[in-house]
Design a protein around this nucleic acid. Sequence first.
DNA 1: ACTAATGTTTAGCATAGGCTAACTTATATG
DNA 2: CATATAAGTTAGCCTATGCTAAACATTAGT
Lengths: 147, 147
Amino acid sequence: MSPISKKGASAKLRSQAFKRVRADHSAELAGDYVEMIADLIDDRGEARCTDLAMRLGVANATVVKTLKRLTDQGLVTQEPYRAIFLTGDGWKMAEDGKRKHQIVENFLLALGVPADTARIDSEGIEHHVSADTLKAMARFLSRNPAN
Amino acid sequence: MSPISKKGASAKLRSQAFKRVRADHSAELAGDYVEMIADLIDDRGEARCTDLAMRLGVANATVVKTLKRLTDQGLVTQEPYRAIFLTGDGWKMAEDGKRKHQIVENFLLALGVPADTARIDSEGIEHHVSADTLKAMARFLSRNPAN
DNA sequence: ACTAATGTTTAGCATAGGCTAACTTATATG
DNA sequence: CATATAAGTTAGCCTATGCTAAACATTAGT
């Protein structure tokens, strides 16, 4: 056995994991934005960029710039100085994200993690959870419902 | 109750979560590098930038550039055309990371996630797990050891 | 209807993290 | 020991994501 593979995971498999993480990172901003836009529309009828900026904790101009990318990606539509809307794809992404988020957060609660921590950690974890892991979390949840 | 807070989490709390995620992201590359450098030193006596590049799945030049940052941050030392070493802080960070990584990966295995998926997902999840959540995972693990 | 306040956009900058191509240094082999 | 190959470095480019300051549009209040 070569000393390189002593730890079990081949270099190729490891690099694959890191590549996935990097891909997840570029996808996750889009996910956060559309989820939040969907929430705002549900809560107050429309999403404006100031609200997004406040809730995401970034500057207004950052939101504007990001929305441009999301528009190019076909997730969002907007006209100058008007509210922001989601496309069909955008809604789908938002709903998938919200569902995933809820499972992860409830899972952490069921595990015994304090509520505030669960909320914060789930925000970061959500985007790195594969279908398999999500299923395992859901299974656990159905046996140990969060209180 | 204002319509804004209908969903429970205040805007401030949410934006705090996103800020934490962004902070985690900038910290996590450093973590991956030092962990991998530590592994390489343990496995084969020294860490070279080609190995890092291969295992991380990035180009050589990217590793060089990143190592410069890590050197500035006092995690790594190196001389031109020579192997890479960790400082005391670097070792500490590598060990903390490895410990965390192991708990997360074993936790996923114990949850019933397939081994390959557990390896990949744990790489992404690890950096977003707070002390509270890690403790909850460890507790679960001690009751449901991975097979 | 006008103006003040609010909200949106643009412009310009910075940093992190990728890449390729060209160059330099180290090493291993004939 | 001379040189071919391997390894490391530099330069220059790109995109994503953040920021501030200034310009512009909309809305509300008198």
